[in-house]
Simulated scan of single mutants.
Amino acid sequence: LRVVIPRFQQLYEEGAAGQSKLTQYTRYLTIALGLLNATTLVSLARSGQLLPNCQLPIIPDDSIVTTILIIITLTAGTGLIMWMGELVTEKGVGNGMSLLIFTSIVSSFPGSLGAIWTSQGPGTFFMVLVIGLLTVAAVVFVEQSQRRVPVQYAKRMIGRRTVGGTSTYIPIKVNMAGVVPVIFASSMLYLPGLISQFNQPQPGEPMAPWVEWINNNLVRGDQPIYMVLYFAMIVFFT
């Protein structure tokens, strides 16, 4: 967030006090987003739009007490994950949230690769595996790349001696923004689909044109408009 919001960068540069405030702001924002996400999931579950093919009610008791309890439980789970991420970071293992996200993504690899092997055959399986490894290698290469700006120090006379005249460089990362632009872009593109979920028509009613347009162009990642907007947002946030 420091890359996108200058105020957060100022707090980070203020030292321990500023970083403490920044941590508190991040926690509040995380809980707020968790509350919003939990409310959305419960609303979709109550309306039957969360799992359209499910014939049984996801929440049999949709009373206000049960709804509030589910929302609080989901939000508490967000707080628990945030605490676990901070704990991993404090122990020096690495960036806690990044490791948790990485673990969540990697955990789906065996099932996905197994499905590719079963449905597409070993040829496609090994091709996907090679492409994945090359993609990881390219990402690591770009992430670790530096542009070295040369710096030349002028010579100085101190007494009868000549000192200085050395040369060095300033390392500047090629990808200074990291993964923040990708996360922000995907989050922004998630909002139109979320809004359309709240405006789905009842059975027998026609769908609004703008909702249909969002469902056709901004929900799936294989649509041209989605790809163009995704690319443009990544460049913008970078």
Rank of each mutant, 00 (worst) to 15 (best):
V139I: 07
I195N: 09
A154P: 03
G121K: 01
K21S: 11
T103Y: 15
G96E: 07
V219N: 03
P203D: 12
E143F: 01
M97G: 00
Y153V: 05
V139C: 07
P57W: 04
V128K: 03
V142Q: 10
L134P: 05
M84N: 10
F236C: 00
I131T: 14
A76E: 12
Y190V: 14
T66P: 01
L189Y: 02
F198G: 09
I158G: 06
L191A: 11
V174E: 12
I131L: 11
P57A: 10
P192I: 00
Q120Y: 11
L50Y: 04
I70T: 07
E212K: 06
W83G: 03
G15T: 03
Q55R: 13
S98K: 08
Q144T: 15
I59M: 09
I81G: 05
V4E: 10
N199C: 08
G94C: 06
Q24S: 13
T40F: 15
T39K: 08
I105E: 09
F126H: 02
R27F: 10
Y226S: 03
V139T: 06
I116M: 12
F102E: 15
W83L: 09
V42G: 12
L229I: 03
V65C: 14
T103E: 08
V151N: 04
T26M: 12
V3K: 06
V149M: 13
F126G: 08
M188I: 08
T89P: 00
N216E: 13
S167Y: 02
L87I: 01
P52N: 09
V182I: 07
Q49N: 10
A76S: 08
F102T: 14
I31S: 06
R7C: 11
L191R: 08
V235S: 04
R220D: 07
G123S: 10
E143I: 09
M157K: 03
G193C: 01
R46S: 11
F231G: 04
E86Y: 03
Y25E: 14
T135F: 13
R7E: 13
G204C: 06
T73D: 14
P209W: 02
R161A: 06
V235G: 04
Q24H: 15
R7A: 09
P209F: 00
Q49A: 12
T67D: 13
G34Q: 05
T162R: 09
G79L: 06
A232F: 00
G193N: 04
P201L: 02
Q200K: 10
L29G: 12
V140F: 02
A208N: 05
F126N: 05
P122L: 09
G204K: 05
W117F: 15
L133W: 10
L29C: 07
